[in-house]
Structures are given as structure tokens and as C-alpha cells.
Design a binder for these strands. Sequence first.
DNA 1: CGCTGACTTGAATTCGCTCAACGCGTGTGG
DNA 2: CCACACGCGTTGAGCGAATTCAAGTCAGCG
Lengths: 242, 242
Amino acid sequence: MQRRVYEDSVSTSYCDTCAIRNRAICAGLQDDEISLLNAIGRRRHLKAGERLLWEGDEAVLVANVIEGVLKLSTQTVDGKEQILGLAYASDFLGRPFGKTTPYGVEALTDAHVCIFQRADFDRVAREHPGLQHKLLERTLSELDRTRRWMLLLGRMNAEQKLANFLLEMSVRRANVGCADVPGEADVWALPLSRQQIADVLGLTIETVSRQFTKMKKDGLIDLPSRREVAILEHAKLEDLAA
Amino acid sequence: MQRRVYEDSVSTSYCDTCAIRNRAICAGLQDDEISLLNAIGRRRHLKAGERLLWEGDEAVLVANVIEGVLKLSTQTVDGKEQILGLAYASDFLGRPFGKTTPYGVEALTDAHVCIFQRADFDRVAREHPGLQHKLLERTLSELDRTRRWMLLLGRMNAEQKLANFLLEMSVRRANVGCADVPGEADVWALPLSRQQIADVLGLTIETVSRQFTKMKKDGLIDLPSRREVAILEHAKLEDLAA
DNA sequence: CGCTGACTTGAATTCGCTCAACGCGTGTGG
DNA sequence: CCACACGCGTTGAGCGAATTCAAGTCAGCG
């Protein structure tokens, strides 16, 4: 029977050929554990802009990012958005063992995710300490990363924020594909609009734009088009990032 | 043999009579699991101002907060401090399964903690899924709390930040003892100096002071002494917190 | 070709920071 | 006991970075 257009049940070969098989929570699991995840997981394709989770909803899904960039965000009462973080390939999304989803998730680029019904996932996790351990490790390092981001939000000026943002994106993006060749130009397409960058950094769109312009004028970066960046002076950018 | 003055091995009765026995990660563990924790844990008393963990150190300890308030903090390159969060009774400290401690921990009030050698704790956690599960749940909700704090740092003005700070402290403090009687005056001693409050909120000491003064003038709070606060208009304070 | 939405640029404003002075309580040594 | 220093907090003045408000530019698309 045909499933919904964007969902397919995961055949055994899916996990075996999965791009993140060795980096996500699946890494290092035993064969029987992988099979179990296989049985309850589905692949899903998300178009850029499509939402996977809504803040405050009952938490019915958790997922692994296979490819693409997604944003986790929450909203202030007066409607401003604060992006809580970005999720890249092999990152985990959602709130296992919780009632409600604490943040919204939206794809910034076209993306592939491997989704699980939370109830299924919780059950397997409870019964398989290895999986739970992986999840714990991932959550702990996510907590560390989030806390470092607090330093950025609380203590940095616009220039430092943007420098850090570009450097982190450069690293996280590079981790996904092949390793960067040192000395090679560091160019890529930004998966975020100026507004979204502003939301990540706790700035306004105008401030982000001005800082981009300034960095370009100073020769630290290039902006071949609106949605592309090149880091020209990696070292100087790191100095700015302080 | 006498141990160091501030450390005592935990006798069975320690856990049984522990104030946080039913709220920390120990809650709901089986008797044999509790016994194991008992065997590897020690109580330690910290004086206000004493440090338990240093950022960047090899992670040798993890701990449960039994009583008191501690701060988790990190430093910028130029020496400014950013407090990453506060830990209250039943909160968990440290970085299990990690090489280095990602933040410094210092007691703000006199405090009691239940400390474990990380190696011991890791081993017990690995072997006892129940414990690991508790730890995971706690880490996940800590991540949620931290992300909500990002919204405060990234999107709020000084007034909103302080209002949120006071309200959160009121709640977290109240959770420790008996429940607040509604309508009762909400008065307590601040465990933080103005400077520390500034570090928590990503503000300067002067701004914090001015906001305190303003709130007092507006009748929202009272400041019986430098280190005491009373929330007079809880509802109005919540309006400010937005 | 003109419309639309995303981005940039400019000018004015404002919020929080910096710098500086001062107040207050506490401890210390003469 | 007083004088004084010291830490901590408050208050004021001026400044500056980032925001707000307001035009303008640009690219993509019907």
C-alpha cells in the first residue's frame, strides 16, 4: 500500500546506506537495535520552509536530521521570533519522554529527516540502554553548545555575533561533507535569510546587513550574491569573534 | 578513619533521609540502584563563595545539589563573566560521559551537595538504565530551560530581564521548601550580588541597580535591605516579564 | 514592464554602557 | 572610640551601539 507522498517506511538498506549512520545516535548501536529503529522510523523529505514541529504541540514526533539545515525557534509574546539553534545533519530533533514540543522546527533548506513516533521511540529507548546512552550524550553536548550560545547572546556585540555565526556555520557545514581543504576558499550558500540570521543572533535585520557590509568592505568576507558568503580572512574573522 | 572535614561517606541512612531523595535523579530508582549511589557518593558542604568545579578542568566530579544555590558560569576572553544558569536543590551538576567540565560551579549560598567521582558515576549509569533515564530526563528539561533563557538574553530589555529573573527565582526557591501560600508576601534573601545578577542577565551592575530602584519606586517590589527582595505586585511583575 | 519581497542605506532616537562621584555599612588598626 | 579604608550599591552625566523609522535599491517573476 502506498504511503503518503513524503513518507516511506525504512527498509533495512536505508540505515545501511544512511549518510549519517555513523554519526547520529545510530552510531555504534548493535545490529538488533538498528533493526528496531529501522522498523519504527520513516524517511521524510521537507521542502525549504516546511515545518516539522510546532512549539507547544503535543510531542508526537522525534527525528534525526539526515541532510539539510533546520531551525529551532520560539516566539515572544509580542511576536518576535528567537531562534534557539540550528540543526544540521546527524542532529536530533524533538523531545523524547516529554509531553509537549518545546520549540518549533522548520526546514531552512530542503531537508531529509528520519522520523519516529515518539511513543515508539520512547519505548525502544527505554528498553535499549545503548540507544538511551547515545541520546544522553547528544543531549549533553547540545546543552553545552546552547550554553556557549548564551555567552554570545548575553555578552557580544553585533560584530562578534556575526563573526561567530559565520565561523560556526563554516565548521558545522564542513562536518557534513568532506573535510575542508585548508587554504581553499570557504564559500557556501547561506541557508538563512537576513531576518533569520537576525533572529539567531538576537539582532535586527538592519544591523545584520550593516555588519555584513562592513565585513565585506574590510575584506574579511565576500558576498557573491545575497545568499552566498565566502570567508576570505579566516584568521581575522576569528580575531573578531574574540 | 576520619575523612576530610567537609566530606563524609554516605551511610545508607543518608539517602533515606535525604531532602531531595524524591526529586533528584535518585527519585524512583530501585533500592539496589540507590545502594550503589550510596556507595560511591559523598556529602560535601560548601561555604558561600567556594568553588566546586572549574571550567575546562578535567571532569572528575559530578554532583547533586541537596541544599543551597550555586551558579554555573563561563568567561569571555576579555574576562567578563556570563552566568549560564543557577542550580537549586535537586539539580544535577557536572558533565557525565565527558572529558572536561564545560562550566565553572561556585556556591552562592552555603550549600550541601552529594558528589560522585565521575568515573564511578559513569559506570553505575551505564550499568543501570533507570539511572541513565533519570539523567536523560533531567538533562532534557535543563536544555529546555536553557533555551528559554536564550529568549531572555536575546530579545528582552533590562526591565523584562529583571522581572523574569525575580519571578523565576521566586518559583524555584519556593519549590524547595513548602509551597507558597497565595496572597502571602513573597519575601526572601537574594543569594546573588548585584554583579552576579548582572552576569546572569547579561547586563551591567548599574543597569540592574537602576531597574531595582525603578521597580521599587513603582511599588512592584520592596527592598528591605540590599540582599532582600519582596515581590509586592506579582501580577504586575508578570506583565512586565511579557 | 512593473510588482513584490528581500535587502541595503541613511537619519534620528533610545536604551544600556562607561565613567565618575557619592553613600552606606563593616571591619580594622591606631 | 574614632578615623579610615574597603566593598558594595546607588545615582548622575554623557556617550555610543543598536534599534527604529523611513527611503531607496535590487533581483526575480508574472
